[in-house]
Design a protein around this nucleic acid. Sequence first.
DNA 1: AATCATCGTGCACGAATGTGCAACGCCGCT
DNA 2: AGCGGCGTTGCACATTCGTGCACGATGATT
Lengths: 328, 328
Amino acid sequence: MREDDAFRAATMYYLQDQTMDVIARTLGVSRSTVSRLIKSARDDGMVRISLRPPSSTGSQLGHRLAATFGIKAHVVSVRESASEVHRLEQVAMVAAGLISEWFSSDMVLGVAWGTTVAAISRHLKSSPSRGSVVVQLNGAANTYASGVTYASDLIAAIAAAFDSTMYHFPVPAFFDYPETKRLMWRERSVQRVLEMQRRVDVALFGVGALSAEVPSHVYSSGYLDDAEIASLVDDRVVGDVCTVFLRGDGSFRDIEINARATGPTPRELRTIKRRVCVVVGEAKGHALLGALRARVVTDLITDETTARYVLGLLRGAPGSPAGGRLGP
Amino acid sequence: MREDDAFRAATMYYLQDQTMDVIARTLGVSRSTVSRLIKSARDDGMVRISLRPPSSTGSQLGHRLAATFGIKAHVVSVRESASEVHRLEQVAMVAAGLISEWFSSDMVLGVAWGTTVAAISRHLKSSPSRGSVVVQLNGAANTYASGVTYASDLIAAIAAAFDSTMYHFPVPAFFDYPETKRLMWRERSVQRVLEMQRRVDVALFGVGALSAEVPSHVYSSGYLDDAEIASLVDDRVVGDVCTVFLRGDGSFRDIEINARATGPTPRELRTIKRRVCVVVGEAKGHALLGALRARVVTDLITDETTARYVLGLLRGAPGSPAGGRLGP
DNA sequence: AATCATCGTGCACGAATGTGCAACGCCGCT
DNA sequence: AGCGGCGTTGCACATTCGTGCACGATGATT
């Protein structure tokens, strides 16, 4: 009843360009109610708005990223003065919309967990599909990390939006002993998840930065101890993708901890058709660069500031693009 | 430049839920300009808004039509007091949106010409495709009919919206002599069009009503003379689809003029996957009923009043649903 | 039966948006 | 150079929209 009114109101508003006043009279309710009906139609994912980017031109930033790394780049504009959380929120909204466009019935969506993906999940509108699956890409056990919802809640929220079956991955982010991992990987409960991971059509993940400034919660929430972090620094690790660590050049071999990590390696990730990476924050610049060089990304969603920073890294001094190239 | 700003503005507005004021500051222009940028983004078809109808419920009218005739029905709500031209305008907006959804690259769209289709063409936003074709379904020569744009302009406008190749059908709506038609049908220029018509994926047409009240321009614009119209009445014709005449029960055999008409017969139409019929006006009720019974429609787009009227025809007295069933 | 919680509604006001108008800049022409 | 048309911009005002609040209906609980 109410849902049906919402549909009628939304149709008249968005498709027939009627004012809410006219709609109110047609439906025999007050104008306020129409406003609320239309809002509910939006919130329930009944209204889908998508934008076709102008064909010829494009943001310089986006094109340069696309050309340099052979990916599709979606560079989101955000008010200059915005805080980083605000920027993340904005980018997450756009990302949520794009994911909804790309993911539909009978597909498998693989998701990593982290602040970025959590932000996206908050902005997903319901867009039910049939026969689709959402599968967790890397373990997290039940540890609660500051400000981040449980990984299981995250998966559940995403699966709910798409009306998908969900596959949790009930293992810790990192094993303490490689042996345990090897044994667990033989368990059928784990095999079931791994098998589903191999069938992923769209992967969604962020990157974690090892940089001290704004450490990703992987590094700050007790998943790794000091000795392990020191070992990462020794290995010239700049960050991680799905809890697999990468160096600035995109390599990831011979990093001890990776043998105990639970996420798919870049090698495994690359077998997935569409790999959507969402990143906000200059602090993640080097990590993102590593991910791009590891070719784990097919679609990058970020904001202008981060995009500019990463492109700057390519020409400036490795440590700081701002300080790059002082003289001729 | 401007197109790119429009895209940025539209993204921030529709996807990131920013106010125009914030967008204005981000882009460094005035708020009014942002309003205009967003409007231009909409007008240029850069913004696509689609609605997912509520799954379970549905307008009674739409469901009854769907159930009765085995079609998909899209019943548009319009303010009660609206004039018929206004109702047509509203329905045409919705129809334009749906056609844009259904028609895309590498498809062939067949269109009839008439006031209804003309109204739809006015509301089509540009949504470029590649390799698509728009082909005229029935002849019209160059006659100019009151208030109706040339059929060729109509086709051109539709083809422009989709960036399609267009195939005109340069023959009169009706031949005077069946013989001429037979000979013309052998011409390669005509064959080329007929061949393309056979490849149509989506057909778009209205219905013409023979009813005296608001005669479709096929009947009032000199295409047919008085004797011919009298003969149609004798044959119990109620209207036409693509200039092929139908009786109330959907039959169309042994109607002399059909042998001289240039549009596809219902039989030929039915080979097309998606056949979109757009109808507004009670006067067209009987004609629409005939079309539905002839099974030439897979998707009907109409307004509530017309829908109610047609459903009324099924139970009321054939001539007038309002006067049906006076006693118990 | 009385009470309370919850939800939906309309009202009214402030916020956001659309648009006529005048000023400005940019070309092309005389 | 001067001039006039054309398109774009910002301003100011009118319209349209969003939302806190209070009211009334409904239904569950005591």
